[in-house]
Nucleic acid binder design. Sequence first.
DNA 1: TAGGCTAATCATGTATACAATATTAAAGGC
DNA 2: GCCTTTAATATTGTATACATGATTAGCCTA
Lengths: 238, 238
Amino acid sequence: MSEVQMAAKRHAPEKEGDERHETIYRVVSDAIVEQRLKPGARLREDALAEVFNISRTGIRKILQRLALEQLVTLTPRRGASVTRPTAEEAKDVFDARQLIECGLMPDVARRIGEKEAAELRDMARQERQALRSGQQSIAIRLSADFHVRLAQLSGNATLAEFVERLCSRSSLILAVYGHRGHLGCESHDHDDLIGYLEAGNGERAKAFMSRHLKAIEASLSMVEGEDNVPDLQDIFGS
Amino acid sequence: MSEVQMAAKRHAPEKEGDERHETIYRVVSDAIVEQRLKPGARLREDALAEVFNISRTGIRKILQRLALEQLVTLTPRRGASVTRPTAEEAKDVFDARQLIECGLMPDVARRIGEKEAAELRDMARQERQALRSGQQSIAIRLSADFHVRLAQLSGNATLAEFVERLCSRSSLILAVYGHRGHLGCESHDHDDLIGYLEAGNGERAKAFMSRHLKAIEASLSMVEGEDNVPDLQDIFGS
DNA sequence: TAGGCTAATCATGTATACAATATTAAAGGC
DNA sequence: GCCTTTAATATTGTATACATGATTAGCCTA
């Protein structure tokens, strides 16, 4: 039984209509973000429909949403597959995170309270724990969740949603260009960040976030991978 | 014959498959951005399906995309309607534009060339012309197009896409909270902006864009409109 | 045996039929 | 006469059937 199937059985008992779709969406989305579904993996409609016990109609709706979020790539008449980000897309995503996430830090510093700081610390703790116990997939998602929660604290739902999409895509980027074992965020960075925010030092937090993101990006090795159809014309000249 | 119908006949002869959907998407999207379809307008699936001569299946796909872009609101079992942005959403959208569009100006100033500047000037010219000849709908869309094109020149496709969505939503916001006759962008602002960019003065352009966006936002009257279901309990006390 | 052609299989694109639910109109009671 | 209840209508939700186009396997030929 596949990971996705197990996740389906775990998460989707008998909910009604929309709940069901939302649940399935999240299960698939999580599987991608957690890198259990790797870039390039094909997502056949029939297969998914059978796993989740709904018709292809519902699956298509979910695949379309994932495609608009650029987690899956929809090729006409060829179906869906987990997106394999290009080097250029990777650069765009991290530049976008620099601009948006750093820009939000002052707002977050202004609005954060005791309760929110505690919640963030708990998330950071869970993340470290997942790392220690070797659950890398879980750690990756928790790390993304942390960045998203942070953005939500800014109070701007629109920008938080953008950050959510950027973090999901970052996970894909790490899967393709990251080194094994290294999952981006350093273990204690997030805790340090919470400290600056709680102290109300927005500018310091902003600078720290900038270094944090640069560090992640620097840890990538930007070689476009294996299955890019080798262009023989390029290789052998004319 | 409705505006949408005419647009459909004009734009959608016999293309094949995906082209067709893309065309229909754009026709509906444009109708919303140009405020020919006003916030709150219901979009019944059957009606759209008939207008565009496709089945509801295709229409649902398009409505879903529009919903994810927050141009239409999908209420379960109640169908689709053009989104009526709340005051809070309006604030979020303009704050997001401040952060992103202003942040992109230095990049744009660095990358803009003669050809690009000429293209932008042409767009600004078309916009003024539309305004002068009383085609407010067209002017609104051209104004949004200008901002989007600008963002594209930054070279960051991801951020450009975000700006695209923000501009579409801004059009909706103007439709709800804007004053009649005033369509946001001052006629010559865009030309001034091109000047700073062409001179390579990114910081100046950034500051100007900031003022430009603030001016638009300031021109709104943020009273939540008419059809918010009147809460009789509130009005008459208990 | 390698290359290319053909046929069979498989997957996606699209429409339609049917079921479930919301809206509207009508009728009846207070 | 107005409000409530009930039936009719209209609209969305879901599955399925069929058509179209890709992929693969097998076969034939050179």
